[in-house]
Every structure is written in structure tokens, then in C-alpha cells.
């Protein structure tokens, strides 16, 4: 088990190094941040001064080396726009994103797994068809459009929920649903197909031959096996939710890192964009690691593999 984890950690470090190089180059392709930081009509000397202040006048490889050197000491740099430490900025926004992702994940699992199980047990029945429609809509409706419709319906017409911002339980419901629907659909489809496969297996046949009640056959023998791929997907999706909520957070003015990234790109705030992408990448790598380990805990076949 120890060797297994160490090996995965090695791969993680390599992935993150490649990611840092990629984002460093790509963010610089978006343009010159100095232009956005000066008064309109500023002189070329002012621009040069700003570039010098942020070290943007140095050759790219020197900038990258300095970026890596700071990174190694845990320093993600200063925001060009906010003039504060990027990590501090990131950490101040992270709790909002975590809350949003946690609620959206809860929605997606509480809706996705039971409906997926029902759809598989009643395959081709009414429930299965209803589930298919729900999943099709969830996977194909863009989240900003769902968000806007919900604002129109629940905030403008009914006046039940606040249209934007954060602070109370009521604020999180709409953005969490707008973000979670897509994932609920994905979790439902995977639960359904995974359950169908498992329900056709020999060990489920044997469980029925033993005379077990159908509820026990489904809940114990089938569901536990069927949840293995769903759990993997959910783990990766949780990290995706934290990092891809850019559109939903912008629509609902939710103060998370998605909106911070959106602002960072708009202002060409290189350190902010680099930090968010790198931390997001680190999270995805870490969750993959955790899922692999959890897998090994649940599934004894992996646990004993050497």
C-alpha cells in the first residue's frame, strides 16, 4: 500500500510541473497586463515602469525560473490588480467555492444515485423514461441558462430566493442546483448502467438463488459493486465543481474562486490565473490519489495487488 501511494505521488509531481509550464506560457499569450493597469493615455515610460515593477521586462525563462523558485517556497506571488498576496486572495474565496461544491455534490448524489438505481431496477419502465428525460436535460442545458431561468422564476416571479450574493442558506440553493444538475445527470446515468451490469452478474444470480429478499440483493450485493465507478466519478467531479463553477458563480455573483478566475483573466492578472489553475490542478491530482486509495480500501482485489 505504501509503495502504491509513493508511486502515485511521483506521477502527481510530474503532472503538476508540466501544468505549471503550460499555464505560464498560455496566460502570457492573452496580452500585456500593463495596458489595463495604467490610466488611459499613459506614456510609454509609465507602461515600461509597470512592466519593470512586476518583472515582466525580463526574458520569459527568467520569469518562469523565478516563478518556480517562489512556488517552491510556497509563494504564489502578488496580484497585479488587488496588490495583495495571491494565496491570501485565493484562500479568502475558497470557502465559498467549497460550500457551493459541497451542496451541489449532495444534490447530485442524493438525486443521481437513487434515481439511477430505480431506473436500473425498473429498466424500460416509466421511471426509467422519466430519468432519461431528466438526465438529457441536465446534460444538455447550459448552466448559465438554467441559472437565469431559476432567477427569473424563483427570484423575480415568486420572490422566494435571493437572485445573487451569499450569506444565508437560501443564497446557495439556486447556484448549487444550477451547478449540480449536470452532475446529477452524469451520476444517474453511470449508476444506472453500472447497476444493470451488476444485476446481470452471476453473483447477483447466486444471491437470488440463496433466497435473499430482493431489497437485500439490490442494496447489498448489487449496489456496493455498482457504486465503485460512481464513487470514482463523484470524487473527480467534486474537484471539477470547485474549479469549473466560473459561469455559475458569475451568473449568481457567488464570491468563489470561479469568479476570481474570471476576473483574473479579464484583468490579465497573471499571478492570480496561474495560482488558480495550478491549485486546481493540484486538487484534481490529489483527489485522484485519494480515490485510488479509497478504491483499494473498498475493493480487496486492488488492496492485495502488488
Amino acid at each position: 500500500m505504501k509503495r502504491f501511494i509513493v508511486k502515485r505521488l511521483g506521477f502527481a509531481v510530474i503532472s503538476l510541473f508540466l501544468l505549471s509550464l503550460t499555464i505560464f506560457v498560455f496566460v502570457r499569450v492573452t496580452g500585456d497586463p500593463a495596458v489595463l493597469l495604467v490610466e488611459p493615455g499613459a506614456s510609454a515610460a509609465d507602461l515600461a515602469a509597470i512592466r519593470e515593477q512586476f518583472g515582466l521586462d525580463r526574458p520569459l525563462w527568467v520569469q518562469y525560473g523565478s516563478f518556480l523558485a517562489h512556488l517552491a517556497r510556497g509563494d504564489l506571488g502578488q496580484s497585479f490588480y488587488y496588490k495583495t498576496d495571491v494565496l491570501e486572495l485565493y484562500l479568502s474565496r475558497l470557502p465559498s467555492s467549497l460550500l457551493l461544491a459541497a451542496v451541489a455534490m449532495t444534490f447530485s448524489l442524493v438525486i443521481g444515485i437513487p434515481t439511477g438505481v430505480i431506473a436500473a431496477v425498473r429498466v424500460n419502465g416509466w421511471w426509467d423514461s422519466a430519468g432519461k428525460v431528466f438526465a438529457l436535460l441536465g446534460l444538455s442545458l447550459p448552466s448559465f441558462w438554467v441559472g437565469l431561468l431559476m432567477i427569473l422564476f424563483f427570484s423575480v416571479y415568486l420572490g422566494w430566493l435571493p437572485s445573487s450574493g451569499s450569506g444565508t442558506v437560501w443564497h446557495v440553493l439556486m447556484p448549487a442546483f444550477a451547478l449540480g444538475w449536470y452532475f446529477a445527470a452524469a451520476h444517474m446515468r453511470l449508476t444506472r448502467s453500472s447497476m444493470l451490469e451488476v444485476l446481470g452478474s452471476e453473483y447477483v444470480k447466486l444471491a437470488r438463488l440463496k433466497g435473499l429478499p430482493e431489497a437485500l440483493v439490490i442494496a447489498k450485493h448489487a449496489l456496493k459493486n455498482a457504486l465503485i465507478p460512481v464513487l470514482t466519478l463523484a470524487g473527480i467531479n467534486l474537484v471539477l465543481m470547485i474549479n469549473v463553477a466560473v459561469v455559475v458563480e458569475t451568473v449568481f455573483a457567488w464570491p468563489g474562486i470561479g469568479r476570481l478566475l474570471y476576473e483574473g483573466i479579464a484583468f490579465r492578472d497573471f499571478p492570480v490565473v496561474q495560482a488558480i489553475v495550478l491549485l486546481g490542478g493540484a486538487m484534481i491530482v490529489a483527489v485522484n490519489l485519494v480515490v485510488d486509495v479509497l478504491y483499494a480500501v473498498i475493493d480487496p482485489r486492488i488492496r492485495y495487488e502488488r
Partner: peptide, 15 residues
């Protein structure tokens, strides 16, 4: 009681 053909597949791997 009944014994199925395939012993490798008829036991549940997780229990």
C-alpha cells in the same frame, strides 16, 4: 439449492 456454472463469477468479490 442450486450451484451455478462459473465459480469465479458466482461469488461476490466485495464480501
Amino acid at each position: 439449492a442450486m450451484i451455478l456454472q462459473d465459480p469465479l463469477a458466482s461469488l461476490n468479490p466485495l464480501f
